[in-house]
Design a protein around this nucleic acid. Structure first.
Lengths: 219, 219
DNA sequence: ATAGAATATATTATGCATCATGGCTAGTGC
DNA sequence: GCACTAGCCATGATGCATAATATATTCTAT
């Protein structure tokens, strides 16, 4: 799976530039420049940028170029509001579908997270974290909800949580709550636990991200 | 607004083909064929299809082409679940922001819908319907939530409601409930009214759309 | 005569068409 | 049933026309 699609590579590259603030709101993304940086031609870059427009990261000014979209603190709060609702619903639905084996896997992942934390292996923590949520979200068997969830999580920079002190520990605690609710077999309790988990993450991200407070004007 | 962007035209064309069932799940969308039909070259078509992949309508089999994605009855139910939550939240948020003038506009639109219904002018009904929701959604001042809402409504075929007997009348009734809640200034009541409204629409669409009941298997 | 505005020109980048390459598949022969 | 071949089609590289903006030049008014 070296480079399945150049346009995906271009999209991922620019998305990360936007999320890490290396490209600021209002700036133009020059197709040719990106093409040079990634050593590809302009066609796949343009395709990738159009995909990013579809994701809400860029706006397209016809015959002018792609502009980085505004992303305010309120926007991030709203994104996590969506993410919390969706992750909560998916987790609630998953409760009835999770097999005993899958529950065991979740417990194993939770153990791995704890030991990895003690070793200070944050990459491993993130991997297990991801697997934990993925297992739950797949078990819900609701691909469209999962699609919307992914759309909302795209706004979280890769490896963002690494840079937030105390987050992995808080996450480990939240997962314990989710697991307990799953073991209790109570979908509503699972939903609440997962919603709180995501909400915590959102609060941390807003505190650490240093975003513009309000939009500039009315479009 | 003749042809703002050929890729948008291609995306809209194929999206409608998928939604109206002229392209069935699993079928390949041949780039060159679409290009011929729209009398454009393959580049903008491919760009449009990549956008549709981002919207969840198509899947991309690398080096094979674009395949129409599965859309089951459960998927549509989930899409309307999302739509109802988002429209409800937006309406609740709008309640505090709506000016007296905007409320008057909503009432005027509601009146227009009623008279247009009596004339049997379904196009006008749809126009006012759209304006009604748009006014509320803009007043909520939550662009990201609005983005997700739009993503969920893209799955509703254009002019779909025209073909459903009794829908315009039911819609008129639901709007009355929403308006009453807005006039009462009660966000929670507004949310409930709007969620019910969308849920009704979803039920009607599922009943009339004749979709596959379940997904074929595990991807 | 100079400052400012308006027009003409030059430059830049988009957007689309065309072309070259190579992967995937089906069809043929053994 | 398997290997090989031929053709189709996705993918992306390149070239060109057009639109938009920046720059320079000219004209006008004070």
């Amino acid at each position: 799976m070296a480079r399945p699609q150049l346009s995906d590579e271009a999209a991922a590259y620019v998305r990360e530039l936007v999320l890490t603030g290396q490209l600021r709101a209002g700036e133009f993304v020059r197709v040719e420049r990106v093409a040079e940086e990634l050593e590809m031609s302009v066609t796949p870059v343009r395709e990738g940028l159009l995909a990013l427009r579809g994701e809400g990261f860029l706006e397209l000014a016809p015959r002018r170029g792609f502009v980085v979209a505004e992303l305010t603190e309120d926007d991030v709060r709203d994104l996590f509001w969506v993410q919390a609702r969706l992750a909560g619903e998916l987790a609630a639905r998953a409760t009835a579908h999770l097999t005993a084996e899958q529950v065991k896997e979740l417990e194993a992942l939770q153990t791995s997270i704890t030991t990895a934390l003690e070793r200070g292996d944050l990459d491993e923590v993130e991997r297990c974290n991801h697997a934990f949520h993925r297992t739950i979200n797949l078990a819900a068997r609701s691909p469209k909800l999962a699609w919307f969830l992914r759309a909302s999580t795209r706004y979280v920079p890769n490896r963002f949580y690494h840079r937030i002190g105390g987050w992995p520990d808080a996450s480990r605690h939240d997962h314990t709550e989710v697991l307990a609710a799953i073991l209790a077999g109570d979908p509503d309790q699972v939903r609440r636990a997962m919603e709180e988990h995501i909400t915590h993450a959102g609060q941390l991200l807003v505190e650490h991200a240093d975003l513009p407070v309000a939009a500039t004007g009315g479009d």
